[in-house]
């Protein structure tokens, strides 16, 4: 299950890089790989979700990106994981809410690192747009995740 999910995250990252971005704001994307982290939350548990999250970021970062894109992804990934963990533990949110929180916090984390690296406070102007795009992406990924989990065979967990 572990290897399968990481491989899936890897493929989804590549797939997403093929989708052209029409909006000229850096950082607007679907975040399809969050699907994998969500599945890990449901099927494996919070600790495994974290490990899978970090491994897929490192793997994708070393393959497709550079040191800085790795840093952005790591900040976004960890902040989004913490937000999802918080909502997941409270049990009063469905996967959709967890996914939205993850998407939004991923973008917030990336902006914070970009502000630090580039030493420009003015990047805060991107934040509202990135929060909205993160919400929409989170809703889509959340719906997708529910459907995938419904169809995922039970015996994969073993």
């Amino acid at each position: 299950m572990y290897g399968l999910l990481i491989a899936l995250a890897f493929v989804l990252s590549y797939l997403e890089s093929l989708i052209p971005v029409f909006i000229a704001v850096p950082g607007v994307k679907l975040g399809l790989t969050n699907l994998v982290v969500l599945i890990a939350f449901v099927r494996l548990g919070k600790k495994d979700a974290f490990i899978i999250n970090v491994i897929r970021i490192l793997l994708v970062g070393f393959t497709f990106g550079n040191t800085y894109s790795l840093l952005y992804s790591l900040a976004g990934g960890i902040l989004s994981y913490l937000a999802m963990l918080l909502l997941w533990k409270r049990k009063s949110f469905s996967l959709l809410g967890v996914s939205v929180a993850g998407g939004v916090c991923h973008n917030i984390g990336q902006i914070l690192v970009a502000m630090t690296v580039l030493e420009t406070g003015a990047l805060i102007y991107y934040l509202p747009i990135l929060m909205i795009s993160g919400t929409i992406a989170g809703i889509l990924v959340g719906i997708l995740c529910k459907e995938v989990i419904k169809r995922l065979p039970r015996n994969l967990d073993s």
């Binding site: 909502l87 009063s92 949110f93 469905s94 959709l96 809410g97 939205v100 929180a101 939004v104 934040l127 509202p128 747009i129 929060m131 909205i132 919400t135 809703i139």
Partner: peptide, 15 residues
């Protein structure tokens, strides 16, 4: 769930 909708609305209002 209801909380999901509240969360989404709060985020949209803030942004």
């Amino acid at each position: 769930k209801k909380n999901d909708i509240i969360l989404i609305l709060i985020i949209l209002v803030i942004s």
